[in-house]
Design a protein around this nucleic acid. Structure first.
Lengths: 133, 133, 133, 133
DNA sequence: GTGGTCTAGACCACC
DNA sequence: GTGGTCTAGACCACA
């Protein structure tokens, strides 16, 4: 039973960044999974291993994993480890899409309140979209 | 003997709503100002009056006013009261526009991570924009 | 702003009982809410107050509250407290009904595996139901 | 060169399934015995053989057998192997029946707490029973 | 070794 | 005062 688990590449975590540390871990893992760098059945690093890697407490990692399990993206098994679930990729994409809609809705609302007309808002969207590429 | 007197139109504040109470006040006042229902030089209600109106603590209103003053949208004069500043409308619109860009940028990033192509993202944007109207 | 919060009647918690402590708290609160002893908008006791009451750690109570918020039964507001949400009663009942179906399904499966015919299983169900009253 | 040889019919074990691995083995063996596919005196596969079959550790199989022996369903003889005990079938059925009663009792309790009347609970039971067939 | 639970105590944001 | 986050360290169940 070889141990394929590896502390794969993960960007460092920063307490200075906005948002809780555990959320940063959640987001990064969602990215790994939604972009298929982490496939179903693949074991994630253990709490302790990832905690050491990221220089955070074991509990912070644990909390991130709990959040991901709650969303059905990973599953945890006592004594075995934590794994990407069968529909993890799908779930992760769905979650991101839902979040994207929320953000766009908010953004459009703010733009409208700033006095922009619908056509101007769409122009703004196109502009921002171009910048991002 | 109901007291229908109110300082000016303001929707009630709710502890059930997401986000801090003071932020809800800030947002509402920004709306009033960016949509020109509150014009430069017009006095805002006093801390105590608004606090009573909204059934929140004076401290909460104070914090909201401080936030707005920091953004240069209103100004306070000892003993006189609080007023919409000359460029309050402009500032408020600018702030909202800036926030809108941020949200759109975030939304587009999430959509991209969910696997959507640029053209699909623009479609999504159009769809959300339509829903909101 | 009177403080209606009270450390209402809550049965003691026991580490000897099966299942985690936080689950026992969750279950008790679900009962209070599903049976309308705790109505929407009513504040639950604070983490610290309930922890003292039940002689458990603040964190254990916190975890129970997190679970209930996740299920949409209560909501937490920083600085204000924790409250039964508008649809808390409904959600709580739905959750219990769902759980009941699961348990019955499991029970019937086991009974079938023990060799009982469908008619015998229904008799068993009637018998158990009578005992419980 | 696939190896189709197997000790006897047993569904594969899955780490993704809920519940410990050893419990899954226990449950499957109880089924085999309660449904008389494994009769008294019949030798069970050795620890090592079953472990290889199910791709789990020998220790995990050992623990499952211990659990079954504790319940009097199987017995072990030094140097000979493990066998279904004389009253294994009966014991297994009794255990399942006892467990079924527990589950039904729990299920009815939850249903009652969700606000269902006795007649409605019986309807629910009939409904679930039908679904399962 | 893995994850699961419980504990105690810190600091912060909000009211 | 409230809840929100992060920390460290204990003990247990499982493989």
């Amino acid at each position: 039973m070889p141990d394929d688990r590896k502390t794969f590449l993960m960007e460092p975590i920063s307490a200075a960044a906005p948002g809780p540390l555990y959320q940063q871990i959640v987001d990064q893992l969602k990215c790994e999974i939604s972009e298929n760098r982490l496939k179903p059945g693949v074991p994630l690093p253990s709490f302790r291993a990832l905690a050491e890697d990221l220089l955070v407490s074991v509990i912070t990692v644990k909390r991130a994993y709990e959040e991901l399990e709650r969303e059905g993206i990973i599953y945890r098994r006592q004594g075995l480890g934590t794994f990407v679930s069968e529909h993890g990729h799908t779930r992760s994409c769905e979650a991101k899409l839902k979040s994207a809609r929320e953000l766009l809705r908010e953004g459009f609302r703010e733009a409208a309140e700033a006095g922009l007309k619908t056509s101007e808002i769409l122009d703004l969207a196109r502009e921002v979209l171009k910048e991002n590429q």
